[in-house]
Design a protein around this nucleic acid. Structure first.
Length: 321
DNA sequence: CGCCTTTGACCCGCGC
DNA sequence: GCGCGGGTCAAAGGCG
């Protein structure tokens, strides 16, 4: 899979179309939301992130985001590279369903890579016997050169005062670097679970310091060790939060759909997209704009897999189509 | 003591 | 080939 360099590189290549963050390197993410009309946070606010509760919990939505993108972005090609990176991933994905045991090609790649990593380590030991590298550094360099394949990455913007958002996993910070042309450093985290190669980078948007950009790379090989956050409803607390299917790099497949349908029902999806107040009450008209996202081509797909929308939009409204 | 962050050094890829 | 910038390592120190 052709994975783009990374979010920062995207800054150079993205096509800013002046929506939401007019000068943001990530504005492309808004394009497929017809973002010139979106109020500010674009994609994440579409997910309800504009509301306070989302700050530390929006990662609950992320697992389904890739399958959502094609539905939201019939004219994807014009979007920026950040969005394209998402599409690169999503287009190769099978829709993730809780019962699905299929793992996408991308995910398989990740797993395979992990396996080959282990194998590589074994080979390394073997190699060391025959062709002894002189120094530890040489060994490291050799190892590094053996695997330069990047895992699929997925970047998200979050409006938050906290840099490191709780996402249900434990992370160990292993580096921090100053970002060129930005006063804010970028932090590098690795999943603390053994044999789990997932990494994430956290940085603040240069254009809007209130926004945290989190980039995930890799795929967790284990369920979340933490409950993502305290449950908000009694019914939700009775549900398992994590299934064993991982179809999304780095994020667990969560099963909070019903829970968040409840949470999001008052959220006026359409009005928000169109720049209206997110606090507007949910009238039936609120989902009118959903039609814009569900083109005839994508509409049929929505019947079988609503992607993120099925978490956001009550099912009866989806059926209204 | 274990886990975590901090931070300088190092490596690598890429553009010129 | 060189320099720059991103990414990673690993030692040191902090904290509970």
């Amino acid at each position: 899979m052709d994975v783009k360099k990374d979010v920062v590189k995207m800054e150079d290549n993205s096509t800013n179309i002046g929506c939401g963050f007019s000068s943001s390197p990530f504005s492309g993410i808004f394009d497929f939301c017809e973002g010139e009309k979106s109020s500010s946070l674009g994609f994440m606010e579409l997910l309800g992130a504009g509301q306070d509760f989302c700050t530390n919990s929006l990662f609950d939505y992320l697992p389904q985001t890739p399958s959502m993108l094609p539905s939201l972005a019939p004219n994807f090609p014009k979007t920026s590279i950040m969005a394209k990176e998402c599409s690169d991933y999503s287009l190769n994905q099978q829709p993730a369903t809780p019962n699905s045991s299929s793992i996408s090609s991308a995910s398989s790649e990740a797993l395979n890579e992990e396996q080959t990593d282990n194998k590589g380590a074994a080979d390394q030991d073997e190699e060391e016997e025959h062709d002894q590298p002189k120094t530890k550094k040489e060994l490291k360099a050799k190892k590094a050169s053996q695997k330069r394949q990047r895992e699929p990455r997925f970047a998200f913007m979050t409006k938050s005062e906290v840099d490191h958002l709780e996402d249900g996993y434990r992370w160990r910070k292993y580096g921090q670097k100053a970002v060129k042309n930005s006063p804010f450093p970028r932090s590098y985290y690795r999943c603390t679970s053994t044999a789990c190669n997932v990494k994430k980078r956290v940085e603040r948007s240069f254009n809007d310091p209130s926004i945290v950009v989190t980039t995930y790379e890799g795929q967790h090989t284990h369920p979340s060790p933490l409950i993502p956050r305290p449950t908000l409803t009694a019914s939700a607390s009775a549900q398992p939060n994590i299934s064993t299917t991982f179809a999304m790099p780095s994020m667990p497949r969560t099963l909070l759909s019903h829970h968040y349908q409840q949470q999001l029902q008052p959220f006026n999806f359409c009005n928000y997209v169109n720049g209206g107040s997110p606090t507007a009450n949910a009238s039936g008209t609120g989902f009118h704009s959903e039609r814009r996202f569900c083109t005839p081509a994508t509409g049929s797909a929505m019947l079988t897999d609503h992607g993120l929308l099925q978490d956001i939009v009550p099912s009866h409204m989806l059926k209204q189509e």
